[in-house]
Structures are given as structure tokens and as C-alpha cells.
Design a protein around this nucleic acid. Structure first.
Length: 748
RNA sequence: GGGCGAUUAGCUCAGCUGGUCAGAGCGCUUCGUUUACACCGAAGAUGCCACAGGUUCGAAUCCUGUAUCGCCCACCA
């Protein structure tokens, strides 16, 4: 008989148990014990790549949630006999990290520009190294059974090689191109950002209705009068009877001291009913106007610079911030009696995700990925697409979801995904940042900058060009470019490694729904294009962990909860269980310490179930006979847990939990186990067994002991993915066998 | 402007393909010091499952509409 402590003390055992797992090597699938009982099909790989946390700080409760889900799936599959591989890694997160370190330096009075590129990047690397170590320890603390021998970093040498090969391949296919157009400029971060990094915010604004001059026939409305010095046209709807007579006419005027030339054009995009039904076209400072200007061959006049200051006008305008210039122009309009109306309206303003600055649309030369350009598939393993087919990247991204080659859980996000794809424009991938993957393009300059010369030579390859006078493009790549490669760059691509052949496509990816576009869609793009294959078979999107009042965790609210403090207080298993319990896929979940407390109690219940059984069961005396007669309570447990398969083929709990795990319904599986262990097994069956255990009927005693023991074994296995530490600890008291982590999953 | 989600016990939330689905955690009431567990046990209270229609033998669960809240996307100058 073995005596357990009266209650489970997580803090005493967790570190040792994690070390045991590490020592076993079982996190590496190649080290898993052979399972001769299984077919090759049953032993096929099961792969998850960890969504790499940004090396910008600590992991928060959302990470703990995400990691727990993945660890549950991986442990479940490992026990089923799959070659379960979960690859760890971190993300350099270019823009997020750069702006964070820049802010830290500013606190010490140091500016990025003072340090220069090399020194600044060194500072960033110091910061990320510390952050990396913290993150790795947190992952271990949560019990993550990651294969640490395969750890990757989005900015390490291997991944950098992958990035260059990916870029070069797309460049050669004409899918990466350099284009001069109006982009989203972040005046604070001093970089271009992609459409997806623009966050729209509703703000109060004034809509001004005015004329350029007394002689101009059409009034126009704008919220940004300061940009009007860059207007080159006025657009009206071709079907608008009010203005038809003016279409095609041109006017020269002086607007607030700046000479402008306005042509009146007709464009379907203009809404007759909005404002005055006429639109002042500013090709250099509005993406829409830029596109319109291209349709009509309009000239482009840049009047605002990278610092959001005016580039034209007299003393009253030039070098003024746009917000100041706006007032100057409004005042001028009033003086000239050109302002017809001022209205208060709600306006959606684009701001930069990282810096919060108001986006200033500017014309610039940048690198783009063409999502609508057809190309020939070099190779395809995608059902419905053949090698050699003409496709676009957008079509590839649509196809694999439409055809369910990739499943999304919960399915409603398919609609969100298509909605995004349909509105997708070319992806701007260059950034004016220092920390990140340098663009593998070199110029032999005969001009000053990349915005200038037209006769320069361009060279793109994975290694620098030979010869004199070459200079590399100063820009770095959007961080999502490298994370788009993550499912296969972690497996050794661009080399055709055995890892790549074995573990790709991966089985599932587990991100939050908020990065469906940023990351998941980009992985699909990169994988289908570069490998001709899907990156993963299933996408499980989890929700956001909020505080106990349903608010997002944020620094300004100071409502953050450190996962490590919670694990210290209640144990890691209790936290894991609390995070998963009741958290349906794709739904936000409120974090409540009370819930963790409840799950700690559940852990204690399990512990005492084990304690009771260990005290009352003589392991040598365990076994059932054909002649055994069972009480209804016995039969219930035998059937429920599928313990006596020769006589009962039902295994309700095992079947339900297994199916729920296979269908990503972790919350259901957790709830089933909770209720079954506590309310059926502990409350009813253990109580039922007590008289027999204390009685004289040896046969009945043996039956009860056997059922108790085998039930405990089954519960430990079923609960292990959720509560790995405690179940492993009990297992070690119960048996001399190998670790629970590699025990076969109960037969369903 | 388009799309999505939520509305179930005091609080936070489950309830998957319609019929033991009216549930869980925490909280609350009463009783209980039996050798697994007071991090417990027994018993119990609290819900016209947002509202109004409809389909059905039967709906929290499907359909339609309404209301409130939240989220995402978007080129209304």
C-alpha cells in the first residue's frame, strides 16, 4: 500500500516532472517508444508549429491559453501513438520590436538616429535575447511539450536563407515588384505600413464645402482642406445632370497662394448624393484619388512630406503641420468668401497599429506582392489545382478554403476570411525599418536614392552581387513575410529535408482569430505558392482572454494577470483546466481567478480519488473473471469507461472525450471529464465500493478493487493532456512503468 | 455601408448535427468532525434560455423579424 499526502501540492512536483519529460526525450518524436500494436497509418506524424511569440516581452494569459490548447492536442495525439511534433520558436516581430526598443531608448534620451543602424540593431538584439529567455521559461512553466531540439527564430540564419529564397523566387516570377504609388505612411514610425496595419478609428471632424475660386463652377466638400493645394482634378459622376456641361474643362487658379490646375473629369466612383456630388481629386495624398488619377492620366503633385508637413505655399503654409495648415486654409477660404458650409461629421481616420499616428497617404516607391497576377504553378499537391495551371495568389488562398482542403474551426470564420480576400490589394512588403530581414536587392546607383533614378541597375539574389558600386536596398521586409514561411521554414526549407517531407503539411495551427489575416492567410499564400501545398490541414482559432469583467487586458487599465503568479498560487494544471473549461472555439473567454480555484479543487479531488484507491487496492489482486457478477454500479462504470471490452463494447466517456478532442472541442472534453470523475465516479462509485472493500466477500472485493484501479488508470490517461503534471505524479506512484506521457490512449 | 457574434441561475460561461439540455465554476441557504478529500459530503434556492412570430408530435437548440451590446471589414470625399 502506498500513502499519498493528504492534498496535491503542485509547487513541489512540477519542476521535477518537467525535467523528467525533458530527460526522456519524448518531446522529440524520433525518441518515442515503438508501438508495435499500431499500424503505420496510426503512427503517422501529427505536427503543430507554435505561433511564435514576439520577442518583445513576457507571455500573457492569452499565450497561456494558446499554449495550453496546443499542448492538450499534442499530448493527446502522442498518446494515441502519433509521431507528435510541436515546434517551438520566437518571432523577431520587426516593427513591434523596433518601436518598443526605440521607446525604451527615448526614455534614456537616446534617439534611434543618434545610434545609427548598426548600433541600434545591436541594442535591439540585446533586448530580444533577454526577452527570449523569459519566454522559453514561461513555456516550460505551462508544461508545453515542445521539441526544444528544433527551436527556431524568424530572424536566425536558416530562416533568413528561406526569406531570401522566397523573395527571389517571387521576384523571378514577377510576383514581387517595385511600384511607385500612394501608400500608407506612418509619420511617427517613419515607415510605410500595409493596409492591414491601418486601424480605422471613428473621430469627430469638420466637412468643409467650398470653391477653389469665385470663378470655379462647382463647389466641393472635404475634411482635409490642406491637401487641396495638391488637387489636379475635380471628379463628378458622368450621370449627374448638374455638372455634365463642365466635364473636360480645365481651370488655372491660385489657391491660398499656390497655383493649381484643375481638370473636370467624370468617374463612376463619385456618388451623386454625397456632399456636393463633386470630388476634389488629390492624387498624391489619397489612395482612392491616386487610383482615379491613373484611370484619367492626371498629374500627381506631392504637397505633404514624410513628417506630415506642408511642402508648398508661402510662409503661412510651408513647413506647417497638416493640422495647422488646415486652419490656415480654412481661414483663407473664409476671408475670400469661398467657404460655403462647415458641418460636424463622424469620420473614420486611419491610424498606425503600432504608433497610433494618423496615417498620411504619400506617393512612394515600395515593394509589393502582386496578388492578382496570374502565374504558372511550378508544382501542385493541392486538390483541384494542377502543376502548370495559371493561377493568382488570391485564387490559391481562396481555393484551399473553399474546397475545404484546409478546415477552419469555428467554420463561421470562413466568411470573414473570404470577405478579406475579396477586398485584398497588393501587399506592401517593404518597411523603412532597421530591425528585420533586409531586402535581397542591390542597386548600382547612378542617382541619389531609390525614389529617384530610372537608369540604375537592379540585382536580386540570395547572395550579394559581384563587382563594384552595388548598394543593398536599405529597407527591411514586413515581419509577416518571414512568419508566412513559418510552417516550413521551421522544418528546414529551402532544403528538401526529411523533416519537411515527414512533417509538412502540418496538422493544425492554433492562432487567435485576430491574426487570421495577418498571419494565417499569409502562411496559406506562401505555402501554396512556394511548396504547392497547404501549410496545415486545420485552423483552430481561439478567442481572446479577457479579465473577469470582460475587458481586454491592457496596460492602460492595468488589469493584467501574470500567468506565472497564477500557477504559483494554484498550480499549472489548475490554470490550464480553467483556461480551457467552458472556452468554445473562437469565443472570447473571461479569466477569473475563482475559476482557477475551482479547478484546483478538482485537482485535489482527483488526488484524493487516487489516494483512496492506492490505500484500498492490492495491485496484485487485480483482475476480472468470466464468472464475475457485477452490480449495476459496477456495470455502469465498466461501460462508461470501456473497461471490460470483452463483455461491454460501450465506452461513453472515452468515446466522447476522444471525439471531442479530435474535433477541437476541448471545452466539451474537459467538462465531460470533470463531471464524470467527480459526480459519477467519486460521488457514486467510490461510495458504492466502500462496503465491499471493508467486507468479507473476497470475490466482490477483488471486483471492486479491479474496477477502481482500472478506472483510475483510464482517468489519468484521459486527464493527462489537460492536467499533465498531477496525472504524471500520480502515475509515478501507481506504477513502475514508463512515463504517462507515452502511455497508450484508452481504446475507444 | 457590409459582415459576424452575443443576449441561458447573483457573477463568468458551456449546451456540438432539434426530443433525460435546463447545466458547470464561483457565490448563497441548511445540515454533517463516518479512516479519500472541509481544496469535502448531503440536501436546497435562484432561470417564461432577450422579445415577437413561424416550422415541428416536440425548440434554448432550426427559420423570419425586432431590440440591446460587442467585434471585424470598408475608397463616403
Amino acid at each position: 500500500m502506498i500513502e499519498l499526502e493528504k492534498s496535491y501540492d503542485a509547487s513541489k512536483v512540477e519542476a521535477d516532472i518537467y525535467q523528467k519529460w525533458l530527460n526522456s526525450g519524448y518531446f522529440t518524436p524520433e525518441n518515442l517508444p515503438d508501438r508495435p500494436d499500431l499500424t503505420a497509418e496510426q503512427k503517422r506524424p501529427y505536427t503543430i508549429v507554435l505561433p511564435p511569440p514576439n520577442v518583445t516581452g513576457n507571455l500573457h494569459m492569452g499565450h497561456a491559453f494558446e499554449d495550453t490548447i496546443q499542448d492538450i492536442l499534442i499530448r493527446f495525439r502522442r498518446m494515441q501513438g502519433r509521431r507528435a511534433l510541436w515546434i517551438p520558436g520566437t518571432d523577431h516581430a520587426s516593427i513591434a520590436t523596433e518601436s518598443k526598443v526605440a521607446k525604451l531608448l527615448e526614455k534614456d534620451g537616446v534617439r534611434k538616429s543618434d545610434l545609427g543602424r548598426t548600433e541600434f540593431v545591436k541594442k535591439v538584439e540585446q533586448f530580444t535575447a533577454e526577452s527570449h529567455d523569459v519566454i522559453i521559461n514561461q513555456l516550460k512553466q505551462i508544461g508545453a511539450s515542445l521539441d526544444w531540439t528544433r527551436e527556431a527564430y524568424t530572424l536566425d540564419d536558416k530562416r533568413a536563407e528561406g526569406v531570401r529564397v522566397a523573395f527571389k523566387t517571387m521576384y523571378d516570377d514577377g510576383l514581387i515588384y517595385q511600384g511607385y504609388r500612394v501608400i500608407n505612411w506612418d509619420p511617427k514610425g517613419q515607415t510605410v505600413i500595409s493596409d492591414d496595419e491601418v486601424v480605422h478609428q471613428e473621430r469627430d471632424a469638420q466637412l468643409y464645402t467650398f470653391r477653389y475660386s469665385k470663378d470655379f463652377p462647382i463647389p466641393i466638400a472635404t475634411t482635409r482642406p490642406e491637401t487641396k493645394v495638391g488637387d489636379t482634378a475635380v471628379a463628378v459622376n458622368p450621370n449627374d445632370p448638374r455638372y455634365q456641361q463642365y466635364i473636360g474643362k480645365e481651370y488655372d487658379m491660385t489657391f491660398c497662394g499656390v497655383p493649381i490646375h484643375i481638370k473636370i473629369i467624370a468617374d463612376e466612383a463619385v456618388e451623386i448624393d454625397f456632399g456636393t456630388g463633386a470630388l476634389g481629386v488629390t492624387p498624391a495624398h489619397s489612395i482612392i484619388d491616386f487610383e482615379m488619377s491613373q484611370r484619367h492620366n492626371l498629374p500627381l503633385v506631392q504637397v505633404i512630406n514624410e513628417h506630415a508637413k506642408m511642402m508648398v505655399g508661402g510662409e503661412n503654409l510651408v513647413n506647417k503641420k497638416t493640422t495647422e495648415a488646415r486652419l490656415v486654409i480654412v481661414e483663407w477660404l473664409q476671408q475670400q468668401d469661398l467657404l460655403e458650409k462647415t458641418e460636424d461629421i463622424k469620420q473614420s481616420v486611419g491610424t498606425a497599429e503600432r504608433t497610433g499616428a494618423v496615417i498620411e497617404p504619400l506617393p512612394k516607391l515600395q515593394w509589393f506582392i502582386a496578388v492578382n497576377k496570374p502565374f504558372a504553378m511550378k508544382q501542385s499537391h493541392i486538390p483541384g489545382i494542377n502543376t502548370g495551371d495559371q493561377v493568382t495568389l488570391k485564387q490559391l488562398m481562396q481555393h484551399v478554403i473553399e474546397q475545404k482542403t484546409i478546415g477552419i474551426v469555428p467554420a463561421r470564420f470562413e466568411k470573414t476570411y473570404f470577405n478579406w480576400i475579396n477586398n485584398l490589394r497588393d501587399w506592401c512588403i517593404s518597411r523603412q525599418l532597421w530591425f528585420g530581414h533586409r531586402i535581397p536587392v542591390w542597386y548600382r546607383a547612378n542617382n541619389t536614392g531609390i525614389d529617384g533614378g530610372s537608369e540604375r541597375e537592379i540585382y536580386c539574389d540570395i547572395t550579394p552581387p559581384e563587382g563594384e558600386g552595388w548598394e543593398q536596398d536599405p529597407d527591411t521586409l514586413d515581419t509577416w513575410f518571414s512568419s508566412g514561411l513559418w510552417t516550413f521554414s521551421t522544418l528546414g526549407w529551402p532544403e528538401n529535408t526529411s523533416d519537411l517531407q515527414t512533417y509538412h503539411p502540418t496538422s493544425a495551427i492554433i492562432p487567435g482569430y485576430e491574426i487570421l489575416f495577418f498571419w494565417v492567410a499569409r502562411m496559406i499564400l506562401m505555402s501554396t505558392y512556394l511548396l504547392g501545398d497547404i501549410p496545415f490541414k486545420n485552423i483552430y482559432l481561439h478567442g481572446i482572454v479577457r479579465d473577469n469583467r470582460g475587458r481586454k487586458f491592457s496596460k492602460s487599465l492595468n488589469n493584467g494577470v501574470d500567468p506565472l503568479e497564477v500557477t504559483e498560487k494554484f498550480g499549472t494544471d489548475a490554470l490550464r483546466m480553467a483556461l480551457v473549461f467552458g472556452a468554445a472555439p473562437g469565443n472570447d473567454t473571461a479569466f477569473d481567478e475563482q475559476k482557477v480555484k475551482g479547478m484546483k479543487h478538482f485537482g485535489n479531488k482527483l488526488w484524493n480519488v487516487a489516494r483512496f484507491i492506492l490505500m484500498n487496492v492490492d495491485m496484485k489482486n487485480v483482475g476480472l473473471k468470466e464468472s464475475d457478477e457485477f452490480s449495476p454500479e459496477d456495470e455502469f462504470v465498466l461501460k462508461d469507461l470501456g473497461l471490460y471490452r470483452t463483455r461491454y463494447d460501450e465506452a461513453r466517456v472515452v468515446e466522447k472525450v476522444t471525439a471531442d478532442l479530435e474535433n477541437f472541442m476541448l471545452h466539451e472534453a474537459a467538462q465531460t471529464l470533470y463531471n464524470s470523475l467527480w459526480y459519477e465516479f467519486a460521488d457514486k462509485y467510490i461510495e458504492h465500493s466502500k462496503p465491499a472493500l471493508n467486507g468479507d466477500d473476497d470475490n466482490n472485493k477483488r471486483i471492486k478493487q479491479t474496477i477502481l484501479y482500472q478506472s483510475l488508470v483510464t482517468y489519468l490517461k484521459l486527464l493527462h493532456p489537460f492536467m499533465p503534471f498531477e496525472t504524471e505524479e500520480i502515475w509515478s506512484k501507481l506504477t513502475q512503468k514508463d512515463l504517462l506521457i507515452v502511455e497508450p490512449w484508452p481504446q475507444q
